[in-house]
Design a protein around this nucleic acid. Structure first.
Lengths: 252, 252
DNA sequence: AATGCATTTTTGTGATCACAAATCCCGGTA
DNA sequence: TACCGGGATTTGTGATCACAAAAATGCATT
């Protein structure tokens, strides 16, 4: 079965870890509106825990760049700019390219099978027009490759980068996806992995990332700001009712 | 004057931030012995604060990989292995190479002057045999380059990587330094920055990192473990006396 | 002298409280 | 109607407490 779990966070049953996972999940799934203010007590109320674990989880996410904190202490989902997307693009090209190259050397037969399966599932979702599953499977495909590299530190860094770009990847649908060249790139990547060809694997992954994030960067307005994709089921109102949970603890 | 300060952590006067800075400083300066256990109450006692800010600071450092936490909850300074050094080497080559390339495009005259000055100060310290100042200036040189790239996210990632390799960079002295090719590489890097030549800047930086970390990796024993450099003034004993502070709050 | 077991101590976790700074809200003035 | 200003409220921070799990300690047995 495909593995999505982060490096050594498994088997950590602390509340802090659960809060962290919930917030991460909510961010990845675009359940927070960029710019939205997130208060400690709000999160604590929704998840039904005290402030202590929420503080630690949120603070870690701030350190990872998934949230940002104003000098006048208020945590919010970062707004994206063209420059930030381009910076993240270039970093991701390096790191995910490196991981793909390593995967070409290290991937086991089983891992390549996992990767191939994810690629198939992307196509299934895409022919059905199911963009939610599409996104999920794209993520699984990428991380199956990175997991095959067998580099835990590298994997952790890539995860933190995905956390930052994640909320904006909805912007790829449907425009970019339909205009993209389809499964050819992924197919070439898989073949490079199987042929143990690191430089081709790196190039294919780099091209994929470059095209996607360049597309997002081009969505910026004249001020360089990028409008967030419509967030799923999140009211922009100040005081969300308790019970109307935008995320929950038992997600993971 | 040269800037060493991290991205937006300035102007944060919270205790948590001070504890974080203290621990970071102590790690960078090699004041913790790798493998050493670090308890929350010990840190709180030495720094004279409550557990709350210590927890958040330590937990952030664990998330950044600067400390590691056993499943049976105990925080310790990570032990280094050859594989880990090689992984960090390859990641650093990518990211610091990227930063150097960007710096070649973006560096201002003033920034190049800062870089040049740091390079000079390295040579001064080196001719005096002052390896402590040497290390400090090498750090300033590198981060002067990375700051010139003007990429805040990239800078943050590189800082977290230095935090992980930092405690082991003492191992470069005196063997590696005396056998290295001296200031020639740094000189070529500076010239590449001035000539606005990204690919040469990247290559020079990459070569520098590759040589240094390959040297460290070769110090591993037959089990792949790397013996830590002698830590400065840290007793390995279990229960350090209060008052015998291995680090302090007013470092920054 | 070495080993197994029960008790004591240590240690991380989560909840709660107090406080000060930031923010919000609302009425009054120009 | 737009713009302030001062009080009420919200909100992050740090300290303290209680608790359970882990580790350390001491003692009896072989």
């Amino acid at each position: 079965m495909p593995r999505t779990a982060p490096s050594p966070d498994a088997a950590d049953t602390s509340l802090r870890q659960q809060v962290y996972a919930s917030l991460r999940e909510a961010l990845t799934m675009g359940r927070f509106a960029p710019g939205q203010k997130v208060t400690f007590r709000y999160v604590a109320g929704v998840l039904g825990v005290s402030l202590t674990p929420v503080r630690e989880a949120l603070r870690r996410l701030v350190a990872e760049g998934a949230f940002e904190m104003n000098p006048n202490r208020s945590v919010r989902v970062p707004l994206m700019t063209r420059d930030k997307v381009l910076e993240l693009r270039d970093i991701r090209i390096e790191l995910e390219g490196l991981a793909s190259a390593k995967a070409a050397t290290a991937a086991t037969r089983g891992q390549i099978a996992d990767i191939r399966r994810a690629a198939r599932e992307i196509m299934v979702a895409r022919t059905r027009g199911d963009s939610a599953t599409d996104r999920q499977k794209v993520r699984e495909f990428h991380f199956a490759v990175y997991a095959a590299a067998g580099q835990p530190t590298l994997l952790r860094l890539i995860e933190s980068l995905w956390l930052q770009t994640g909320p904006y990847m909805n912007l790829l649908y449907p425009g970019f996806i339909s205009s993209s060249r389809g499964p050819a790139g992924r197919q070439r990547l898989i073949e490079a992995l199987q042929a143990r060809n690191p430089s081709v694997a790196r190039r294919e992954m780099a091209d994929d990332i470059r095209r996607a994030l360049s597309y997002v960067a081009d969505l910026a307005d004249e001020n360089g700001n990028i409008a967030p994709a419509a967030p799923a089921t999140v009211t922009r109102g100040h005081r969300p009712r308790a019970g109307a949970a935008a995320f929950d603890l038992h997600a993971n």
